[in-house]
Design a protein around this nucleic acid. Structure first.
Lengths: 196, 196
DNA sequence: AGCTATACATACCCGCGGTATGTTACGCGT
DNA sequence: ACGCGTAACATACCGCGGGTATGTATAGCT
């Protein structure tokens, strides 16, 4: 067999990303071979390298898809809450969504762990800027405009809060003693409140 | 030539770690070949695999050395300050040292970026527990005993503060606008103070 | 002095990411 | 309706990388 329809092509492309996502999560990027990915779909490497220019290219596609999904959900939650409650609670609603992702093994391994190592610190930052960082930054800046946090602390606070959520996500997923969702929310809120 | 003295052996072992540290920092673990490391020292792979059981073993040795160095310095700074000032300032002194390391490219690439990806989330946590995490944890718990932070927030706060410092270190090293050492210290202090 | 374990060097293997080159049929223009 | 270019794969192959099996000479203890 050779060429299939365009619909089939799009299907195999997404199947590749699905399988890659699963394997990258369970075994890690380095310990996952392209052969392995192809065998799971009963296709050959020719197909994979037709859809993606390299193994890193496939990873980047997976990474982007996951980040975009998170970004959309977090942004939607924050905007929805903004119309109902105060800006402070709206910001927390967005952070809640992000924290949910940061506790998922998928997101941890692909976005938080393997991502920086493969894309490089610089590349990771540039790509994350549009999807992760900017959201938090905009949220904090919004709080600043509403007088919730001091203006000169906005930038430093943004990077620290995002990282704090990452760490909390890891701690939650490993079910570390003394670390519960409630205690994290509580501590996080206190930290934000302190910055006026 | 073949076997050298024990002193020579120890020297080549440390030279291997030195070169590996430099290459892992500048090119990353994945893009550094063992041949490359050996060529820089004019030795063969036989020597490297005699001293370290694998490439990962070499990385782990480099990782441990760096972490131990940081741990010693941070612990010393905190203990020294504890006798001179209040517990709160002593804790900050330790955090200051950690933040200094978190802004060094060496530490970023090897410990913070490549470390989790190579050692795995679980392995990374277990090994970091003795060197990085426990320090912060002990510091926060100490603050709790002194009444600076609420006891039920100790665990959640510890993981979040450490991660916050990581993020701040990256932001500082990339010289992000609006993020200065002073603004980070300022924001960090506010966050700690808020947790009583 | 002699033996053994150490500190390397040499030679080799295999699996990996990547490429160059097919081969088939879809779908678009005419 | 019919070519026909090109998309969607398959096949065969390459080079390099981590790792190993084996050799070898000397340091250092008995």
């Amino acid at each position: 067999m050779a060429r299939r329809s365009k619909a089939d092509a799009e299907k195999t492309r997404e199947q590749l990303m699905d399988v890659a996502t699963w394997l990258f999560e369970s075994k890690g990027y380095a310990d996952t071979s392209v052969n392995e990915i192809c065998e799971a779909l009963d296709i050959t490497k020719g197909a994979l390298f037709h859809h993606f220019k390299s193994k890193e290219g496939l990873f980047l596609a997976v990474w982007t898809r996951l980040q975009t999904e998170m970004d959309n959900e977090a942004r939607a939650a924050a905007i929805a809450a903004r119309s109902r409650t105060d800006p402070y609670s709206a910001f927390l609603a967005g952070c809640r969504v992000y924290l949910k992702y940061a506790t998922r093994r998928e997101y941890q391994k692909i976005v938080l762990v393997d991502g920086p190592a493969i894309l490089g610190i610089q590349g990771w930052y540039e790509r994350d800027h549009d999807l992760g960082t900017q959201n938090v930054h905009a949220g904090v800046r919004y709080l600043s405009k509403k007088g919730i946090v001091a203006e000169h602390r906005v930038d430093a606070l943004a990077v620290m809060l995002q990282s704090a959520l990452n760490g909390a996500g890891f701690a939650l997923s490993r079910e570390e003693e003394g670390v519960s969702a409630e205690s994290v929310y509580d501590a996080f809120e206190q930290m934000v409140k302190a910055l006026r």
